[in-house]
Design a protein around this nucleic acid. Structure first.
Lengths: 200, 200
DNA sequence: TAAAACATACTGACCGGTCGGTTTGACACA
DNA sequence: TGTGTCAAACCGACCGGTCAGTATGTTTTA
């Protein structure tokens, strides 16, 4: 009935514990022993499933990116005009990111490590470009359909990504400082206002 | 002639070396011995000037924030309309931030540590609010003078901060991916377009 | 000459990773 | 159903090395 083997369950327990640890105290400050204790698993089990602490981190990165990619694909399709579509996406992100500060924290942990570790960087840069291209194409479509003014779509895409990640960053510093989910939506609206084609 | 004592010079050498180390490899992964070697100074000198590794980090945070505060005060005054003033500020930031990836990296290192360490958080959150208030007041002035539409100024301020920090974040991941300095200016212009009051 | 400013050797805790051994569960065979 | 087998899964003591911090002595400066 249950298709997941015992080993897979253990590996998942380790990954969950590691994610929490890395998010809470950072990669370097989180020991393997601590992860094991938190997962209720021995060190032997850890090194049975993962080659090293580093490779565990990579597994986390890849799992997270895969998840993100999936939820992006969900909203990739649509027939509404581009501005409405972007707003809908930001509303969706609201739900995805308002979940837990820990989730956000690990995301930036990945980002920071990418600047230091070549392997992490290689794993992160490709999806990043993918995202950039995704938004740029969306904007281009908006320009083509006449709902957006003719700015450089890549520039606009980088602006959108900036806005989203910057808000996440502020939320990290001051979780109670604002309704960050709602804020993402309204500042996206603001940016769109700047992008929107003036009726002539 | 030279007013700076020998001790102050040593402390500065240590701080410079530490900044580089923390930025390059992160706080936890940068050892005290490594910092000392890089500064050309012994461990004794280190612990003569700093109580602990942690307190050195705090000193770096405070120095950096003070510097930022100073360069902000420089452009606080002005007689131009608010939108032009904001653009001028983003142009100024271009120069300040395009200097070195290391500089940016240490900035985010501070930010991340703030989420983990109460002392760092306390030191960072106050200036953060200060900045937020600064931009909010600037926007309010723009609304009052009629150059901006009547949005929530705090929301606008958080949007501006998001844009700036988000672009920095992307620059960290992909330094050669764009002319990030120019990008800050043009996306600020985009945001301002959304904020600008339509002539009626 | 006293205090400030350093240098060097050292300590104890901790950490990533290893290793020899043990448990567990699925399957074969009787 | 009982029993032997084997590999996957797991355990935890242990090792080499690193790290923040200290103890103590030496030089420099005013």
């Amino acid at each position: 009935m249950n298709e997941r083997s015992k080993g897979e369950v253990t590996a998942e327990k380790i990954m969950r514990a590691a994610q929490e640890g890395f998010a809470q105290n950072g990669y370097a400050a989180t020991g393997v022993a601590e992860i094991c204790a938190s997962a209720g698993v021995s060190k032997g089990a850890f090194y049975y499933h993962f080659e090293s602490k580093q490779s565990l981190f990579m597994a986390l990165v890849e799992a997270w990116l895969g998840e993100l990619e999936g939820s992006l694909a969900q909203v990739a399709e649509g027939v509404q005009p581009v501005p409405e579509r972007l707003l809908a996406m930001s509303r969706l992100m609201t739900g995805l990111f308002s979940s837990d500060v820990v989730q956000i924290s690990i995301f930036f942990e990945f980002w920071m490590q990418a600047g230091r570790d070549a392997a992490v960087h290689a794993a992160v840069i490709a999806p990043y470009y993918h995202f950039q291209r995704f938004f740029a194409e969306l904007l281009q479509r908006g320009i083509d359909e006449g709902s957006l003014s003719a700015i450089d779509p890549v520039l606009g895409a980088q602006g959108i990504i900036s806005l989203a990640s910057g808000l996440l960053l502020q939320r990290l510093l001051d979780p109670e400082g604002a309704d960050w989910g709602r804020l993402l939506e309204s500042s996206m609206q603001l940016l769109l206002e700047g992008l929107r084609k003036v009726e002539s």
